[in-house]
Design a protein around this nucleic acid. Structure first.
Lengths: 183, 183
DNA sequence: ACCTGAACACCGTTCAAGT
DNA sequence: ACCTGAACACCGTTCAAGT
């Protein structure tokens, strides 16, 4: 990562800001052309900084994922009694709140190297906590860290569906998942 | 539903056949223009029979849902010990196998009247079995039929993600869901 | 009553021309 | 080294003209 020319750095920030604002307003970053217009640059510039629409979404996803990675690492180092369950529920909510993030984590196979690295780190931290919970007899021993990722990506969909009508749904579904993980 | 002119009926069938074939080959019915071409008709004809791409997907969904409705009704009338669990697992697999169906069931709010009627029927049959399972103490009493729909729509995603790499994942996730439904 | 296909809107992406 | 915007491909959808 060489230093960017100052106008390029400014444009990149403007693009991210525009995309973030759009996502916070409409739930999903709009067409790159729209993002470019909001940022006051041409489409080509948008594509110079983010080689695809997905790359832009991933850049925003990284921002949102960062606190989760920190929390997961902290929990792996100094685990509370139900650190694993808390993390699972927290991740589920985070994805349910951000459809673009959820999409990018669910289709993690076609993600760029940065996102992949962050997801790997998350998986490692989750794995440590999972192993500890399994050793304590709190979680089924036949589940892998990847299973947990898949189950979270699934439950997040249920939570999103439930939330539109019913305020208690998210808590109910989280509880179903946590019970389901028990031996 | 008045009788169709014979050429119209033939075209409708040809469109459905083309869409079904395409879905079975590629997992999802392609652009209406492509379906029309395969069926040997113009785009306009495709839109005359199916007012939107979604309407075509829903027409295929109805076919796939039919056996499930039959099974659900049969189980509601003459319930075996774990009829509810079997139906939940069956529905999850059915959706996991057919992404177009899953999409249409998950976004059931924007579906046409026919599909909505079928989903209502399904929900009723599931509701009967759910109530029975709850009365027997086999399922958490705080869950509604709609909760079950949401949880199935979620788990189906997990199953789809799991299946690409791991043959046992589907069974493992089904078991997690069933355990999670217990009181 | 039904069919055809050109046409439009939209969006992701590319690229020749500029500074 | 970076930017611009016209241009292309693709897809959902509409509609004027045909039979």
């Amino acid at each position: 990562m060489v230093a960017l020319r100052s106008d390029a750095a400014r444009n990149r920030t403007a693009l991210l800001d525009a995309a973030r604002t759009a996502r916070d307003e409409r739930g999903y970053p709009p067409a790159l052309a729209d993002v470019a217009a909001r940022a006051g640059v041409g489409v080509g510039t948008a594509y110079r900084h983010f080689p695809s629409h997905r790359a832009l979404v991933e850049a925003l996803a990284l921002e949102t994922l960062d606190p989760l990675v920190t929390a997961a690492r902290a929990a792996a180092d100094d685990p509370a009694a139900d650190a694993f369950g808390d993390l699972v529920v927290g991740a589920t909510r985070l994805l349910a709140d951000d459809p673009a993030l959820a999409e990018v984590v669910s289709d993690s196979d076609d993600s760029g190297p940065e996102l992949r690295a962050v997801l790997d780190e998350l998986l490692t931290a989750f794995g440590t906590l999972l192993a500890r919970a399994q050793a304590a007899g709190d979680v089924r021993p036949d589940l892998t860290p990847v299973d947990v990722q898949h189950l979270v990506c699934g439950m997040q969909v249920a939570v999103r569906l439930g939330r539109t009508a019913d305020d208690g749904a998210a808590a109910r579904y989280a509880s179903v998942l946590l019970h389901g993980l028990r031996p």
